[in-house]
């Protein structure tokens, strides 16, 4: 099949970007979207043109490198997918596909379709952990975790840190990302000890980094490759409010 591409090109973080049009012939319906971009780049390089910079690594929807906003969908069309799981069979022959980077103040564009998601690392460094040093751990079976809680914690922990939630949210809010980590650790006895401090500092960092606030549209959970639910955002709100009202900071 043949497709037309409309791709955001931007030389570096400071440069003004623009959309560039490409045409690609001989696209196989079984190709993944990333492989299609690979073949576009191969073609561009051979023609002596600048290839399109984009991030990808594991191709198993677990590393969270992909940051492509395709035809109005973060990660492209389809439920519970990262871009590596989008195949060209989802598009029509002759279709124009517009590819943009994540757009958010917290995720500045670095080049073409690459964005800087360091903000997520900073939020994690602010409190997304249990303060325990190597060697201090008690026996894992001495911490009993009910199956329901363990499973629920896992659901939250499945976050791959791709930022599709931010990209999907009209407010560029990082609440789902923060909620997933805060909830995971608050659901487990090991994480409860410092749950309050964690909720307060992670939210403060999130606000500081310029993410918007949650207005409960639910776009994030629809686009999340791991279908992390916004019920975790309710839990984060609960954790944050109770921490705010109880702890004298």
């Amino acid at each position: 099949m043949k497709i037309k591409l409309n791709i955001w090109k931007q030389a570096n973080a400071k440069a003004k970007g623009r959309f560039e049009k490409y045409e690609l012939d001989g696209v196989d319906a079984e190709m993944s979207f990333l492989e299609m971009l690979d073949s576009l780049n191969e073609k561009l390089i051979k023609e002596g043109k600048e290839p399109v910079a984009f991030e990808h690594d594991c191709h198993e929807a677990i590393c969270g490198c992909c940051s492509l906003y395709i035809n109005g969908y973060p990660h492209g069309p389809g439920k519970e997918v990262a871009t590596c799981q989008v195949h060209m069979r989802s598009f029509k022959d002759g279709e124009t596909i517009t590819v943009e980077p994540w757009r958010a103040k917290g995720f500045p564009v670095m080049k073409d379709l690459m964005v800087d998601r360091d903000a997520f690392d900073k939020i994690m460094a602010a409190g997304g952990f249990v303060s325990i040093d190597a060697g201090q751990a008690p026996d894992a079976n001495s911490i009993l975790v009910g199956k329901v809680d363990a499973d629920k914690a896992f659901d939250a922990a499945a976050c791959i840190g791709c930022g599709a939630c931010v990209a999907a949210c009209k407010n560029s809010s990082a609440m789902l990302f923060v909620a997933a980590k805060v909830s995971q650790l608050a659901l487990l006895p090991q994480g409860k000890v410092e749950a309050k401090r964690r909720a307060l500092s992670m939210v403060a960092k999130m606000d500081e980094l310029g993410f918007g606030s949650c207005t409960n549209t639910g776009a994030c959970e629809i686009e999340c490759p791991k279908s992390i639910g916004i019920d975790f955002i309710a839990k984060l709100n609960r954790e944050y409010l109770s921490a705010s009202f109880s702890e004298s900071e």
Partner: peptide, 21 residues
């Protein structure tokens, strides 16, 4: 010890209904 350490960090390993690994 590795499992103990990871568990203490909040790694949600699968559990039995009784709460053990």
């Amino acid at each position: 010890s590795v499992i103990d350490q990871l568990t203490a960090q909040g790694v949600p390993f699968a559990r039995e209904y009784g709460g053990t690994l």
